[in-house]
């Protein structure tokens, strides 16, 4: 009798011991598959342009506005090329950022200062720093490549009436400000609906909500509103996107040093 119980316990333990990593691997694979599918569905737009209005709000409710024009060039097999040109505030008008993003090697970044006519190569280590004083870090707005994270599927969850996969992802690149992010991925459209960010101490830091999704070229979903709430500082930033255009015919020469100087 004792023997039989012992055997039973041992076999159950064996199953448990084996099944934990098996289950983990399965969850990791499922998480990665969801990320890959989301990436696959968002591939092939070649290039895009859009206008961005950022509304920065502090704890007291004071607001500051930024106007930025954004251009993107899809690079197959590597991170995208991106250019951001500032229109407002007026003292930084014409300031432009050029980024060649890479999955795991450091991004290449240049900053153009129009008053000095100077191009500065800048360190891309600063991933966790705020973009233009907003609650979005550089790593939040940079090109989201599959290889940038490792993944784990958590569960299915209904978020505001939308069927979602809840996955957790962990930055695989260096110098991230986050230990992990919880991402709610829309089951039908494989687009993010919400991301919760945990800081380096694994404390709740920010929540990003996507809304007003619009589909372009019958395929590509873009949220017109992205609201980032910082839970630690009480500050928030609302991104509003306008005039999205895809396959506009941009090429490498629109993301060169010369193009940076004539960006305005």
């Amino acid at each position: 009798m004792n023997h039989a119980i012992q055997k039973l316990i041992i076999s159950w333990c064996t199953i448990l011991l084996l099944s934990v990593p098996v289950q983990t691997v399965a969850d990791e694979n499922k998480g990665l598959e969801i990320a890959k599918e989301a990436d696959r569905r968002d591939t092939g737009y070649k290039d895009s342009t859009a206008r961005l209005v950022m509304e920065l709000k502090n704890k007291q409710g004071d607001t500051a506005i930024r106007h930025v024009r954004v251009k993107n060039l899809e690079v197959i097999g590597d991170g995208d090329k991106g250019m951001s040109i500032f229109d407002e505030p007026a003292d930084v008008k014409g300031t432009a950022f050029l980024t060649f993003s890479h999955s795991l090697t450091p991004d290449e970044q240049w900053l153009y200062l129009p008053s000095l006519k100077r191009i500065k190569r800048i360190s891309s280590k600063n991933k966790s720093g705020p973009f233009m004083g907003s609650e979005f870090a550089y790593e939040d707005i940079s090109s989201q490549e599959v290889d940038k994270y490792t993944y784990k599927y958590i569960k299915d969850e209904v978020l505001n009436g939308i069927d979602c996969f809840l996955i957790e992802r962990y930055p695989a690149y260096e110098h991230s400000g986050y230990t992990r992010q919880l991402v709610w991925v829309n089951k039908n459209e494989y687009r993010p609906e919400k991301i919760v960010f945990y800081d380096r101490k694994d404390t709740l830091l920010k929540t990003l909500n996507y809304s007003h999704y619009k589909q372009y070229l019958g395929q590509y979903w873009r949220a017109e509103k992205m609201h980032m709430q910082n839970h630690q500082t009480g500050k928030s930033t609302l991104l509003s996107w306008f005039d999205y255009a895809f396959k506009t015919g941009l090429n490498d020469s629109d993301f060169s040093r010369n193009s940076l100087k004539r960006a305005k």
């Binding site: 190569r121 800048i122 360190s123 891309s124 280590k125």
Partner: peptide, 9 residues
């Protein structure tokens, strides 16, 4: 010449 290596320029 500029070498951009992590947080060193």
């Amino acid at each position: 010449l500029q070498a951009t290596i992590e947080d060193w320029l």
